[in-house]
Amino acid sequence: MSIQHFRVALIPFFAAFCLPVFAHPETLVKVKDAEDQLGARVGYIELDLNSGKILESFRPEERFPMMSTFKVLLCGAVLSRVDAGQEQLGRRIHYSQNDLVEYSPVTEKHLTDGMTVRELCSAAITMSDNTAANLLLTTIGGPKELTAFLHNMGDHVTRLDRWEPELNEAIPNDERDTTMPAAMATTLRKLLTGELLTLASRQQLIDWMEADKVAGPLLRSALPAGWFIADKSGAGERGSRGIIAALGPDGKPSRIVVIYTTGSQATMDERNRQIAEIGASLIKHW
């Protein structure tokens, strides 16, 4: 067993022997301040990774656009098919120029040779490549099948209805392509620590998230040296922004954090800054 596999296998073990965790309302004060600064709703939840206990939450059962955070769930569904012998990570998928959609920095470079399922998941999570996500959605049967996968996990809230990039439209009061912070946090925890996926697939999923290259201005910008984070960000229309993450000190994750916002007129930089400040408060009061 590799060191990384050992780390993920012992996530519940280490967490069980940690000192009790206590909620700190100071972080919620910052979440509410972010709402004021952005002029928009902000949803927040913080779960203990081992027990699933909610440590703090704000608007945990209000719907927010998922945006690209759905790509972690998508690759979880792909990995479940791999575990069941219905898919192979090494299978190569070929596609054409007509398949390319807006923001496809990886797939646009491989029109000639195609990409493997493993490479597509890596591109979808680490670079948020939209064509990679659409190609992977095709392998599982489309958005409705991802929703069905989530329902089978016990998540009857999260739903995907459309493809990239239309799913980022974020129309107010439109339930399409949305989740709730509580539902997303619980589902992410199941994917990373539950028995739904094999140990190898859980490790692969967290490795992809740990290698995320496009979430630097968010929670990662607030992390002290030595902290662990595996995350996936999302951005959408109407001032929408979000991030889902597993993080913790001492090089291992111990909490799940989900943050979503929508309806702001603020710039992307300002949305990023507010999420980073929430992260800084979380870490300060850990």
Rank of each mutant, 00 (worst) to 15 (best):
M268H: 10
P217Y: 13
Y44L: 05
R255G: 03
L282V: 13
R92A: 11
E169W: 07
D48C: 10
I93C: 15
G226T: 08
S104L: 01
R159D: 03
H110R: 13
S104A: 12
G279W: 10
A40V: 06
A222T: 10
S281N: 15
C121P: 01
R41Q: 09
V31Y: 00
Y103N: 07
N98Y: 10
I140C: 10
D155F: 00
Q204P: 03
P224E: 04
W163Q: 11
P165Q: 06
I243G: 00
M153W: 03
N168P: 01
T126L: 06
Q203I: 03
G248C: 02
T179Y: 00
R241W: 02
L135I: 09
H156Y: 13
R271E: 14
D212S: 09
L38Q: 07
P65W: 01
R255Y: 02
F64W: 03
D212Y: 03
D207C: 08
Q265V: 06
L73S: 13
S51A: 08
L135A: 11
A123P: 01
P249R: 11
L199D: 04
I171G: 15
D250R: 04
N130T: 02
G234C: 09
E102N: 08
S51D: 13
I278M: 10
I244R: 00
K190P: 05
R202W: 06
D161G: 06
W286Q: 03
L137H: 04
H110N: 06
R81E: 05
L55Y: 14
G194L: 13
A132T: 02
G236C: 10
D155S: 02
F58Q: 11
G251S: 12
A235D: 02
V106I: 13
V157L: 05
K284W: 12
V29A: 14
N272D: 12
Q86C: 03
L197F: 14
I206A: 06
P253S: 05
F149N: 14
S57P: 02
T178W: 01
L79D: 01
T147I: 07
F64C: 02
A245C: 10
I244K: 00
G251W: 10
S57V: 12
V29P: 13
L111Q: 14
L218F: 09
V106K: 13
I140S: 05
M268K: 14
T147M: 06
P165C: 07
T193R: 15
I45Q: 09
R92K: 13
E237I: 08
L38F: 10
M66A: 13
L196W: 13
V82Q: 09
M153V: 04
R92L: 12
P25F: 15
C121N: 02
H24M: 11
M153G: 04
T112V: 15
L218G: 05
R63K: 11
A185F: 00
S96W: 08
V29T: 15
G216C: 09
A245I: 02
D161P: 00
E102T: 07
S254A: 08
S221G: 07
Y95D: 01
G239Q: 03
R91A: 12
A133M: 00
V117K: 02
T193L: 10
E119V: 02
D212T: 10
L120M: 09
L89E: 05
Q204W: 04
A185P: 00
E164T: 01
W208V: 03
A276C: 05
I229F: 13
V82F: 09
A148F: 04
P143M: 11
L79F: 06
I275R: 01
V72D: 00
D99I: 04
H94L: 07
H24W: 07
L100Q: 14
E195F: 03
V31T: 08
N173V: 07
D161M: 04
S254C: 12
I206W: 03
G114C: 11
T267V: 08
I278T: 05
E35F: 02
A246E: 05
G76Q: 02
Q88H: 08
L218A: 06
E102R: 05
I243S: 02
K252Y: 05
S221Y: 05
H151D: 04
T69S: 10
G154R: 07
E169S: 06
Y44T: 02
S254M: 07
K232M: 00
A124Q: 03
A246S: 10
F228T: 11
K144H: 14
G279N: 04
T147A: 05
K284S: 12
E62A: 05
D177I: 00
L191Q: 06
M209A: 06
L74N: 02
R159W: 14
A123D: 03
K109V: 11
E166F: 06
G39Q: 13
L191H: 11
I93W: 12
V257R: 01
A34R: 02
L79E: 02
R271A: 13
D177R: 01
W208P: 01
W208R: 02
I243C: 14
A182H: 13
K232A: 00
D212G: 10
E61D: 13
A225Q: 06
A215I: 05
E277S: 13
P224G: 10
K190G: 11
E102G: 07
P25H: 15
Q37H: 08
L150R: 00
G43D: 00
T116A: 05
S201C: 15
H156N: 14
L150K: 00
L197D: 08
C75K: 01
A183F: 14
H156D: 09
R176Q: 04
R118N: 15
V31I: 08
L137D: 02
P105H: 04
A211V: 15
S51W: 08
T198H: 08
T131M: 14
W208T: 03
R159A: 10
G43W: 00
G248E: 01
D207R: 08
L47E: 11
F70G: 14
A84V: 13
E87L: 10
T27Y: 02
L150M: 14
R81V: 09
A124I: 13
T198L: 09
F64G: 00
G239P: 01
V101P: 02
D155L: 00
I244W: 00
F64N: 01
L196T: 11
E175R: 08
A84M: 12
E46A: 08
